[in-house]
Design a protein around this nucleic acid. Structure first.
Lengths: 195, 195
DNA sequence: CACAAAACAGACAGGTCTGTATATTTCAGT
DNA sequence: ACTGAAATATACAGACCTGTCTGTTTTGTG
């Protein structure tokens, strides 16, 4: 039953990748199905065979984005770690890499959440979960990097710095917020340590 | 020549207020002209007599929003100042009031910037300017409240905390980020003072 | 009252949107 | 070579979008 797979979903993958590119660059509402179909060079029916609706595709794109982005971010971080930076230093250096990457337009999960408006939309719920996972990762880095045990409050504050840096980087079209956030984060950790 | 004014622009005001409400609640792309016209109870031609296009209306709405929101925020702050809080304390208390206000859906300027995608759109440029003005106001509060002269870097960091709190309040549907941001801001100021 | 500016009502054009229907072609495994 | 699933091309329905056009009615002012 599961034999007839073959190359299968070659089209599906092209759809997801194309949609991710267009959705990120122009927004989920601004990009229509026809455009995705044309640029992915697939038939419209292939899209609707794999996804029940555009909303369903948006969700699939965000899931794909989370995997792809996590891998990319870890790769950036690893490079800085190998260059001698500690965990948190590598994190903020990677953040700056992201801000300076071509076509940077902020966080796709925030953007989708804003565009969809509806908090109950599956993509909105997934975005909220992604943020929780992202903050968990950040907290782990802070703990390992600073040695602080009860770093929860400090980690929450640093998470705000990071989210603010992302948004401000978009508004000001600058990567400077990454440095400002890093310095403030170090100050907060130094203060937490003294206690 | 300027006599024939009368009540005039009674319709214009209704259009702007209705558009602001709908744009904020559902997004500038999600709300169509027909909807605004219907809910404002004006003729479509009245809208196009006052505004050359939807983009033009969006810009006018953001200008109106800035005035209205500034007044509302100052009012919130004043109440907390009168209750004994200092400038920065009142600011963060007002921020929390905002997060808890019915229909809160984040910062309209960020949201519009995200939805429009185009950094060159007049509304995007205006939003960037609004942020600059907002941060200037925040810096003044910090300087007066802390007595720090060269508070630029600290103010930038606190601005990131505030922007992050706004976004996170939307994502988590919670007003807690206001408190986290306030505590971190106080820590950053305390550190700046020690230097 | 008379006049002119404004707001009104509503149809319309031309485009885009999501999603469906139909019929043909490719292709892997038996 | 046969079969069946997948991908294809294309037309279509019905809704919505922005913006225009044409008149009619209201309204304030001389």
């Amino acid at each position: 039953m599961s034999k007839t797979r073959a190359k299968s979903s070659d089209a599906r993958q092209r759809i997801v990748e194309t949609a991710e590119r267009l959705f990120y660059a122009e927004g989920v509402r601004a990009v229509g199905i026809d455009r995705i179909v044309a640029e992915a060079e697939v038939a419209k029916m292939s899209l609707y065979n794999h996804f029940s609706s555009k909303d369903d595709l948006i969700l699939a794109v965000l899931q794909y984005r989370e995997e792809k982005f996590s891998a990319l971010f870890e790769q950036w971080m690893r490079r800085h770690t190998e260059a001698g930076l500690d965990g948190l230093g590598a994190f903020f250096a990677a953040l700056q890499d992201w801000f300076e990457s071509p076509g940077f337009r902020g966080c796709m999960f925030i953007n989708s959440r804003v565009e969809l408006a509806d908090a109950g939309h599956p993509a909105s719920k997934f975005s909220a979960c992604h943020k929780a996972r992202f903050h968990q990762m950040l907290r782990t880095i802070i703990q390992e990097s600073s040695g602080i045990k009860a770093a929860e409050l400090t980690a929450s504050a640093i998470a705000l710095l990071v989210e603010g840096a992302i948004v401000t980087a978009v508004m000001e079209q600058s990567s400077k917020p990454a440095e400002v956030a890093r310095d403030a984060a170090l100050a907060l950790i130094a203060r937490a340590k003294r206690k």
